[in-house]
Amino acid sequence: MANAITRMITLFSGSFVGEDQFGNKYYHQKKAKAGSRRRRWVIYKESDEGSRVPPEHNAWLHYTINDFPTGGTAKSWQKPHEPNHTGTELAYRPPGHILEGGQRSKATGDYEAWQPE
């Protein structure tokens, strides 16, 4: 969640631009300083985690694109955006991982374990 200072800056100098499918809200400065561009920022709906920003909104935040993205820009071959799941129940765990039972499949014939003499 945004801290009190960010909320105050948003209240006094921020202008709401839009919201993404995860509920994150995007803002930019009402007025840019002379010779510079408007600052852009996001207030996350849940925890402050950068991977929760979809790629098209990340491009807007970093001035890669000028217009705020609207829905329907995904191609048919693109998967929906998912935040980084590291450290959560949804994280990938390869076969043999301790949290997946710790049992690996047997080694194939091309592998021979080293044995000290």
Results as ranks from 00 to 15, higher is better:
residue 48 D to Q: 07
residue 68 F to E: 03
residue 59 A to C: 05
residue 16 F to Y: 12
residue 78 Q to R: 05
residue 68 F to R: 02
residue 80 P to S: 10
residue 82 E to Q: 06
residue 27 Y to E: 14
residue 78 Q to F: 14
residue 12 F to L: 15
residue 13 S to T: 14
residue 89 E to G: 02
residue 28 H to L: 03
residue 90 L to I: 06
residue 60 W to F: 08
residue 34 A to M: 08
residue 60 W to P: 06
residue 32 A to G: 02
residue 27 Y to C: 08
residue 41 W to H: 07
residue 32 A to W: 00
residue 58 N to P: 01
residue 43 I to E: 04
residue 76 S to H: 13
residue 46 E to L: 09
residue 12 F to V: 15
residue 50 G to R: 07
residue 51 S to K: 02
residue 90 L to V: 03
residue 86 T to R: 07
residue 33 K to G: 01
residue 78 Q to E: 15
residue 74 A to T: 08
residue 65 I to W: 00
residue 25 K to Q: 13
residue 93 R to S: 03
residue 14 G to E: 12
residue 47 S to A: 15
residue 68 F to W: 03
residue 26 Y to A: 09
residue 34 A to D: 10
residue 54 P to Q: 03
residue 93 R to M: 01
residue 87 G to A: 00
residue 70 T to F: 12
residue 80 P to K: 14
residue 64 T to E: 13
residue 22 F to Q: 14
residue 21 Q to C: 11
residue 15 S to F: 08
residue 30 K to W: 11
residue 74 A to H: 02
residue 68 F to G: 06
residue 44 Y to W: 07
residue 16 F to T: 13
residue 84 N to F: 01
residue 21 Q to R: 15
residue 83 P to Q: 01
residue 54 P to V: 10
residue 27 Y to V: 12
residue 62 H to D: 01
residue 77 W to A: 04
residue 62 H to C: 12
residue 48 D to A: 11
residue 21 Q to K: 12
residue 92 Y to W: 05
residue 60 W to S: 00
residue 87 G to D: 01
residue 83 P to L: 09
residue 55 P to S: 02
residue 65 I to R: 08
residue 81 H to D: 09
residue 54 P to F: 03
residue 29 Q to K: 00
residue 23 G to I: 15
residue 25 K to G: 10
residue 41 W to Y: 04
residue 31 K to F: 06
residue 70 T to K: 02
residue 57 H to L: 06
residue 27 Y to F: 10
residue 45 K to M: 11
residue 75 K to V: 11
residue 15 S to Q: 13
residue 26 Y to D: 10
residue 34 A to G: 01
residue 23 G to Q: 09
residue 68 F to K: 07
residue 83 P to G: 00
residue 74 A to L: 09
residue 67 D to N: 06
residue 75 K to H: 15
residue 19 E to Q: 15
residue 10 T to L: 15
residue 70 T to I: 10
residue 10 T to Y: 13
residue 41 W to N: 06
residue 80 P to M: 13
residue 80 P to H: 12
residue 75 K to A: 13
residue 46 E to Y: 03
residue 39 R to G: 15
residue 31 K to G: 00
residue 77 W to K: 07
residue 83 P to S: 02
residue 22 F to R: 11
residue 39 R to H: 04
residue 20 D to E: 15
residue 50 G to V: 03
residue 82 E to N: 04
residue 21 Q to M: 10
residue 92 Y to K: 05
residue 45 K to T: 08
residue 76 S to P: 01
residue 44 Y to D: 08
residue 75 K to D: 14
residue 80 P to W: 13
residue 28 H to M: 10
residue 69 P to N: 02
residue 73 T to G: 15
residue 24 N to F: 11
residue 49 E to H: 05
residue 82 E to I: 05
residue 11 L to P: 06
residue 46 E to V: 06
residue 62 H to Y: 11
residue 65 I to H: 05
residue 32 A to P: 07
residue 74 A to D: 13
residue 24 N to E: 09
residue 10 T to H: 14
residue 16 F to W: 09
residue 63 Y to G: 09
residue 10 T to N: 13
residue 64 T to L: 12
residue 73 T to V: 14
residue 81 H to L: 05
residue 26 Y to R: 11
residue 40 R to C: 11
